[in-house]
Structure formats: structure tokens, C-alpha cells
Simulated scan of single mutants.
Amino acid sequence: MADDDILDELFSLIEERKEELPEGSYTTSLFTHEKGENAVLEKLGEETTELILAAKDDDEAELKAEGADLVYHFLVLLSMKDVTLDELREELDERFGH
């Protein structure tokens, strides 16, 4: 079973890459792309389409892979907009909270 903290770990890595901008990092390339935010928005659109197609094809492996890609790019967008996972959790808690 996956580590419950994987989203926190991934978001932390994204934030680190945003700060340090290491060469050769895909995450760095998203933060420094000449299109800026639009590059990430385009990736979100692409990954969403791929996720939908995987679901329609009942391709479980592809559904998981595309879902992971979508979540990753969503986390990059949150980081770009200086929105934290805690803020996202608070929003979810307000809507569906305990």
C-alpha cells in the first residue's frame, strides 16, 4: 500500500524544485517554461483527456498512470499559485468535513 504521506512528500519536492530550480528536472522545466503557467494548464488538459480515455477504455493501469500524472500537474499548479496542501485540505474539510 502506498505511503499515506505521498502527496505531502510530492508537494514538498515540487516546492523544493520551485525554490532551487535544479537543471535537468522536469518540474523545474514547468516553472521556467516560456509559456509559464499556460504550460502547466495545457498539461492538465492533456492529462485530463488521457484520463477520460483510459476510463472509457476500462484500462485500469492506464487510469492509474494518467490519474497520477493529473495529480502531479495539479500539485505543480497549486505550487505556482502559492496554494498549500493544507489550504486544499481546509477547503475539502469545509465541503465534506467531519
Rank of each mutant, 00 (worst) to 15 (best):
2 A>W: 13
30 L>P: 00
38 N>V: 04
64 K>W: 11
47 E>W: 05
16 E>L: 09
93 D>A: 05
83 V>I: 15
96 F>H: 11
98 H>W: 09
89 R>P: 00
52 I>A: 14
83 V>N: 07
65 A>F: 05
98 H>P: 10
46 E>Q: 13
30 L>C: 08
28 T>R: 09
39 A>V: 02
56 K>F: 09
28 T>L: 03
31 F>I: 03
77 L>C: 04
13 L>P: 01
70 L>R: 07
14 I>T: 07
45 G>D: 13
11 F>M: 02
76 V>T: 07
8 D>Q: 14
43 K>N: 05
85 L>C: 02
88 L>V: 13
91 E>Q: 12
41 L>T: 06
83 V>S: 06
60 E>M: 11
96 F>E: 05
65 A>S: 10
1 M>A: 15
67 G>L: 06
59 D>N: 14
34 E>T: 09
41 L>W: 09
67 G>E: 06
83 V>P: 00
35 K>S: 11
39 A>F: 00
97 G>K: 03
22 P>I: 01
4 D>A: 12
84 T>P: 02
26 Y>T: 14
61 A>E: 15
83 V>A: 07
67 G>K: 09
37 E>V: 02
44 L>S: 06
70 L>N: 14
82 D>Q: 09
21 L>P: 02
39 A>M: 04
16 E>Y: 15
8 D>Y: 12
48 T>R: 11
97 G>W: 04
18 K>W: 02
11 F>H: 14
15 E>S: 13
82 D>F: 00
2 A>Y: 14
89 R>E: 13
75 L>R: 08
53 L>G: 01
48 T>V: 05
20 E>K: 15
6 I>V: 12
63 L>R: 15
8 D>G: 12
76 V>F: 03
48 T>Y: 13
96 F>G: 00
68 A>W: 06
6 I>H: 15
84 T>K: 08
34 E>I: 05
8 D>S: 10
55 A>I: 11
54 A>Q: 11
52 I>W: 12
63 L>V: 04
20 E>D: 12
10 L>S: 10
78 L>E: 07
84 T>R: 08
3 D>P: 00
91 E>A: 14
7 L>Q: 12
8 D>M: 05
90 E>Y: 03
77 L>W: 12
34 E>P: 00
